[in-house]
């Protein structure tokens, strides 16, 4: 598999349309996307037209779009929200859940209602509990770099040449698998225990500890120790773990891929 960095600049004729859909989240995911600074302008200049986004685009009705980025979990007692995600699914080719809340509920898993002015809003579920989600980008907040990489790869999947489509397909596969897996939407420190440590896969690298946004993981005698009361269910530790998913063939091309991602953002 060869990746030609130069080609990337040659094929940006057809932009994709992209929308940001805000469910029960804190706007931290959107802020993280914006933290790509000039990069976000490059994305919007060259690759994508933003066709929907609260406060960013003056559009009230959800339009048809290529890629929907959904942030936040969904309150099942909130008809507006549940209708909205159904409509998004209906009108988008690719639905990407961005951030811990959208992927696995995150901090909203602790919600139990009783708050003004909608005390009956007490049940919040990850987006994939209600609609099919194509790609997960977990973590609280998701990182600007992860959002950048996934956006570029999704663009290549939709608009790239055959080689780029193949590369993007390989890259996105584990994030697609995660969106369909039985554990993706249930992620917490327990997922790391059950799917990595309990299965004899942990090798003590410490990626999980570095990834955790609330420092719930320490390394004791070379293995992760979780303070589960601190865990907010963001899913970062499991997805970051090299033993959650790792494609040797793709990873061998790390230098070209990093080079391409940088070239694309110029």
């Amino acid at each position: 598999m060869e990746i030609f960095t130069e080609h990337v600049n040659g094929i940006m004729i057809h932009k994709i349309t992209i929308g940001h859909i805000h469910e029960s989240g804190c706007t931290g995911c959107l802020a993280a996307l914006m933290d790509n600074y000039q990069g976000i302008f490059t994305i919007l200049d060259k690759y994508a037209d933003l066709v929907y986004g609260l406060t960013l685009v003056d559009v009230r009705k959800i339009p048809k779009m290529d890629v929907a980025l959904i942030e936040g979990s969904v309150c099942i007692q909130d008809k507006l929200a549940t209708d909205e995600v159904r409509e998004v699914r209906d009108k988008s080719s690719v639905v990407i859940a961005i951030g811990g809340c959208a992927c696995s509920g995150n901090i909203t898993r602790f919600d139990r209602g009783g708050q003004q002015n909608q005390p009956q809003h007490e049940s919040f579920v990850p987006v994939s509990d209600l609609i099919d989600v194509d790609i997960f980008v977990p973590a609280c907040a998701p990182t600007p770099e992860a959002l950048r990489n996934v956006c570029v790869m999704t663009y290549l999947l939709l608009r790239g040449n055959d080689e780029q489509k193949a590369l993007a397909g390989m890259y996105l596969k584990p994030l697609m698998d995660l969106a369909r897996s039985p554990y993706g939407s249930k992620a917490s420190f327990n997922t790391l225990m059950q799917e990595v440590i309990n299965l004899g896969l942990c090798m003590g690298c410490g990626s999980c500890a570095a990834a955790c946004p609330v420092r719930a993981i320490t390394m004791e005698y070379g293995k992760p120790q979780g303070l589960r009361d601190l865990c907010v269910n963001c899913g970062a530790c499991f997805s970051q773990c090299p033993r959650s998913f790792f494609d040797h063939e793709l990873m061998e091309h790390h230098e070209q891929i990093m080079g391409m991602l940088k070239a694309v953002m110029q």
Binding site: A139, N149, L175, P242, H254, M258
Partner: peptide, 25 residues
């Protein structure tokens, strides 16, 4: 510096920086 799995972890942190803000670049 690291053993192979740690180097894999480093590359994963670059390509899939799910919880690795400010690391990949």
């Amino acid at each position: 510096v690291g053993v192979p799995c740690q180097i894999q972890a480093t590359r994963k942190a670059q390509l899939y920086p799910i919880g690795m803000r400010d690391v990949p670049d």
